[in-house]
């Protein structure tokens, strides 16, 4: 077990390096000269060639590419992500930190929706396969995977907020502001996991151990919950874990539809303003989250499955 965790931790290092390198290359590919940008941020009135050259040296831009990369990486590890181009008074870290809680609220509630809805629905669809409930849910899954997220958001605003006047249309606030956007983010994941859990359950139902459990005279409910559900969840846990960073990234569109002040909206605004350091930090953040959750749920699955534990030890 300990060996496995260490191995997995070591394996993430090259991945993290790759991700950070990609982010670094990204900011170096932008069309404008960073030294010139830096001068503009400092509101230097007259920008001369000589001044640019001096700033280059000062910022270490005259150093070789790899040296600059490691310098930048070092700063990142100290949570120094630079300053915003559009508003030099603000650091990138501060900007992200200001918007992140709203996004986490949104993603957190979406995750609650995903688990609370897809688990029981997937379970019931498999147990009552081909019943009216299963058919209805299959229709729902099909529709939900084909609907663009933003359109779902608009429809929900229109029906729930405008026609029925039940919830606020958009903006930041308490739980009532959160219900619709979180559901919109969750919808496509709900349908994915209903399908995943249902198919996994159906596959497990055909296994020999189910037949033998029946032959041993176990109760149907015990077989379904203790054996089939547990075995099916085994493979779903990783998938759901992997979807957490996806949920965080998936808030981009929804935040823009519902005017939710999270990092997604910050990111889109930064794209329009060409505020590259903010975009870079956002990409880096999501990439690191992705790797981290991947690692965490791999280890979790490993701990839960006796077969895996045996094989890799």
């Amino acid at each position: 077990m300990k060996n496995y965790v260490i191995m997995r931790l070591l394996a993430t290092i090259p991945l993290l390096l790759g991700i950070s390198f990609l982010c670094f290359v990204f900011i170096n590919l932008i069309p404008s000269d960073p030294a010139e940008v830096a001068l503009r941020i400092r509101q230097t009135p007259v920008i001369t060639e000589e001044l640019i050259a001096r700033t280059r040296a000062e910022l270490g831009l005259d150093q070789p590419f790899l040296a600059r990369y490691f310098h930048w990486l070092w700063d990142c590890l100290h949570f120094d992500l630079g300053v915003s181009y559009t508003n030099p008074a603000r650091t990138v870290l501060g900007e992200i930190g200001r918007c992140l809680p709203a996004t986490l609220e949104l993603a957190g509630l979406s995750l609650v929706y995903v688990i609370a809805l897809s688990l029981p629905i997937g379970f019931l669809s498999a147990v009552y396969k081909d019943s009216w409930f299963d058919r209805l849910m299959r229709g729902f899954v099909f529709a939900a995977t084909a609907m663009p997220v933003y359109w779902v958001g608009l429809l929900l605003i229109w029906i729930v907020s405008i026609r029925l006047d039940l919830l606020p249309t958009s903006g930041y606030g308490g739980l009532s502001h959160l219900i619709l956007p979180a559901f919109t983010v969750a919808l496509s994941y709900i349908s994915t996991y209903i399908r995943l859990i249902r198919n996994n359950m159906l596959e497990n139902m055909r296994e020999d151990y189910v037949l033998y459990a029946q032959a041993r005279g176990l109760k149907r409910r015990a077989i379904l919950v203790r054996h089939i559900l547990k075995n099916s969840l085994q493979s779903c846990v990783t998938a759901i874990g992997m979807s957490i960073p996806q949920l965080i990234a998936g808030t981009i569109v929804v935040e823009n539809v519902f005017a939710w002040p999270g990092v997604g909206r910050l990111c889109i605004a930064s794209i329009f303003n060409r505020d590259y350091p903010v975009i870079q930090a956002y990409v880096l953040l999501v990439g690191v989250l992705f790797v981290f959750f991947n690692l965490a749920f791999d280890i979790l699955q490993y701990a839960a499955d006796p077969r895996l534990r045996e094989r890799k030890a």
Binding site: L15, G18, I19, L22, F26, L29, I30, P245, Q246, A249, G250, I252, C267, I268, S270, I271, R274, Y276, I279, Q280, Y282, V283, V286, G287, F290, V291, N294
Partner: peptide, 17 residues
Amino acid sequence: VMLSFPSQIIILAVVAL
């Protein structure tokens, strides 16, 4: 490395660039 990013993020980054 490509697969370790959510696709939406990469697309946004490239479009931004």
